[in-house]
Simulated assay, not measured.
Amino acid sequence: MNDQWVVYISKEKIAQTVQALAAEIDRDYVGRSLVVVTVLKGAFIFVADLIRALKTPVDRVELLRLSSYGAGTESSGEVRVLVELPPGAVTNQHVLLVEDIVDSGRSTTVALNLLKAQQPASIKLCSLLSKPERRVVPVDIDYCGITIEDKFVIGYGLDWDERYRDLPDIYAIESVE
């Protein structure tokens, strides 16, 4: 790390946000269970914390892997599906799609369309972070943790060229060298 990085969201604020999101989801899913689908790699830490905070039964966790960044700090605009769900994995299930961040909306829209094609009983979106200034595809977030400014962020699963996912806080990169 260097002096151009500042803690943008503390690990304490992240933990409070996870608990608040879990409570909101629990209120909406009383008497039902969920299949949680997460988008790798960025959301893996968030989804682990979220499902442990839920009181709602989680029947399964399924994984999607999408890519739109590569090594840079700007999305390429092209979303590649690297790992899909097995056929029928969410058919007739109540699905919670968990994202680390909704930025342009492109990746999230691809994920939602993949899930909708399997005809779930219901589908809702939970994202730790939302960056609405960057949105080019409209996305409705059912459970939004924190709305952030248009900054490049790393830590708590979010990466920069596959590094820094292990940082416990979320950092804003003030300048890219």
Rank of each mutant, 00 (worst) to 15 (best):
L50Y: 07
T147V: 15
I173S: 08
G42Q: 04
S127V: 10
V153W: 00
A172H: 05
I170S: 00
L21C: 09
V153C: 08
L158R: 05
E74H: 14
V30S: 11
I123R: 07
S76K: 11
K11L: 03
D166C: 04
D103P: 08
Q93R: 15
S76W: 00
V81E: 06
T147Q: 15
I101R: 05
V153E: 02
I9V: 13
K13R: 14
R106W: 06
L85A: 09
V36Q: 05
N113D: 12
E74I: 06
D150C: 10
L96S: 04
L34A: 00
V30M: 07
D166M: 03
R165C: 07
E99F: 02
D159C: 00
V95Q: 09
A71D: 13
V83N: 11
E62Y: 09
D49K: 04
L97I: 10
T56M: 00
I173E: 08
D161N: 15
S76R: 09
S67P: 06
V7F: 04
L97C: 04
N113C: 02
F44S: 07
I25F: 05
V36M: 03
I141H: 11
L128T: 01
V95R: 09
S104G: 07
G77V: 07
C144V: 14
V36E: 04
V153H: 08
S33P: 12
L34N: 06
K151A: 14
S68E: 11
R27L: 14
T108C: 15
V102K: 08
S107K: 04
V90S: 11
I101L: 05
V110Q: 00
D59P: 15
L96G: 01
I123S: 09
V90F: 12
L63Y: 14
V110I: 10
V39M: 02
T38V: 12
K131T: 02
Q119M: 11
V83I: 13
R135E: 08
N2G: 12
L34G: 03
S33E: 15
D59M: 13
S127G: 12
L128R: 05
C126P: 01
R65N: 13
S33N: 15
C126Q: 00
S130W: 05
D59W: 10
L112W: 00
K116H: 14
G72M: 03
N113W: 08
R106E: 14
Y8L: 10
G145N: 02
Q118T: 10
W5N: 13
I148E: 02
S33K: 15
R135C: 02
F44C: 03
K151D: 04
A43F: 03
S67M: 02
K41A: 08
L125A: 07
G70V: 09
L66A: 00
K55P: 09
E74F: 06
A43N: 06
L128M: 12
R135N: 06
D49V: 03
Y156R: 00
A23R: 15
A121D: 03
L125W: 07
D28E: 13
E12I: 12
R135G: 01
V47W: 12
N113F: 09
K151C: 10
F46K: 07
A117H: 13
K41M: 09
T38W: 09
I173D: 10
V7I: 15
F46D: 06
I146E: 13
N92H: 15
Y8V: 06
V6S: 03
V139P: 08
A89S: 15
V137F: 13
S68V: 05
I123C: 12
